[in-house]
């Protein structure tokens, strides 16, 4: 395998990892602070993509569309918290899972009603739609660099928010001791709503960023949510740092596995055997890694401090 391909696949892996982080960070925040399992988090990712697609056509520019779509998805997250999640906080996880499973059916069908069964392609501005030469040999789509940049910026912003702001302090305190935060006289309901909205905006952003590459489509949320679960399980549920490291790990391993596993297998088995087994193994790779991590550390790589 040559270096050019390796670098390009590595960039793809990082891109997938960052998108996974955007989805997983919201999940892990909501779980860490609210002890709430939101299966419908993937639907917010999907809605982000669809809303952004519509706005791109309405406003004529993808970047403006993202800026307008972000507060809208945040608002949707706020509403989900208010009407679905809040009545379920006192219930067990089974009820969370079933309730938000119902919500997925509702949101997916609503998307189907509004945007139709077909996917919607999202056009990019011309300056983003080209290729960039990193070196003489390595050429990558410009937009992929933008995704990586935006993903890193969002991750950096989230770390800053959690570690250096008052809201972040409350979030951290809430994750380790909920009763204490409410005892401080904080409007805990508002805090919960904001956390949900933040998670929704992050997931929505991931959906918006991927839409120009894959189109906005109805199944997209349900595909990514399980991978996001794998990420937060490996990282340790409730840990943002864990989610970040695990997301990059999973993104890289998944991408690299699909790209190179057959070549690696060919080193020690016949070509035919490698070509039949590699796709199967690479499809299972991230789950095998999850199983391995759990066998050694049942709480994930970075379990949050005692709650």
């Amino acid at each position: 395998m040559d270096t050019t391909l390796l670098v390009i696949q590595a960039l793809n892996g990082v891109q997938l990892g960052l998108l996974l982080f955007l989805v997983a960070s919201g999940l892990t925040l909501v779980f860490g602070i609210l002890d709430f399992v939101n299966l419908a988090h993937g639907s917010l990712y999907m809605l982000g993509a669809f809303i952004c697609a519509t706005l791109t056509f309405a406003l004529g520019n993808f970047l403006w569309a993202v800026l307008v779509a972000l507060p809208i998805t945040a608002g949707l997250g706020f509403l989900v918290e208010r009407f679905i999640a809040r009545p379920l906080y006192t219930r067990d996880h089974l009820d969370h899972v079933l309730g938000t499973f119902g919500l997925i059916l509702v949101l997916d069908t609503a998307a189907h009603l509004i945007w139709g069964p077909e996917g919607i392609a999202v056009p990019l501005p011309e300056w983003l739609d080209g290729q960039t030469n990193l070196t003489a040999e390595i050429v990558v789509p410009t937009y992929r660099l933008l995704i990586i940049g935006a993903g890193l910026a969002a991750a950096g912003g989230l770390f800053w928010l959690v570690n250096h702001t008052r809201l972040g302090m409350l979030i951290r305190a809430g994750a380790s001791n909920r009763t204490m935060v409410s005892a401080l006289g904080i409007n805990i309901e508002l805090l919960f709503g904001l956390v949900f909205a933040l998670g929704a905006a992050l997931a929505g952003l991931a959906g918006m960023l991927i839409a120009p590459i894959t189109e906005a489509n109805i199944g997209m949320g349900n595909n990514i949510i399980i991978t996001a679960f794998v990420v937060i399980i490996v990282g340790g549920i409730g840990s943002i740092k864990g989610a970040f490291i695990a997301a990059l790990l999973i993104g890289l391993i998944d991408t690299m596995g699909r790209a190179f596993l057959d070549d690696i297998f060919k080193i020690f088995m016949s070509n035919e055997a490698a070509e039949t087994s590699a796709p199967a193994i690479s499809a299972m790779l991230i789950y095998i890694i999850m199983a391995t991590v759990l066998a050694v550390k049942p709480q994930g790589l970075f379990p949050p401090k005692v709650r």
Binding site: L94, I237, Y287
Partner: peptide
């Protein structure tokens, strides 16, 4: 593996293993 964990971990892991089988079957062209 799943039963080493509790609660939400268990829910998500059973889900993930099921998805693993899903992708496994998808990957087998034969």
């Amino acid at each position: 593996i799943c039963l080493r964990t509790r609660g939400v971990y268990f829910i998500m892991i059973t889900m993930a293993f099921a998805q693993m089988v899903y992708y496994l079957i998808v990957s087998i062209e034969e």
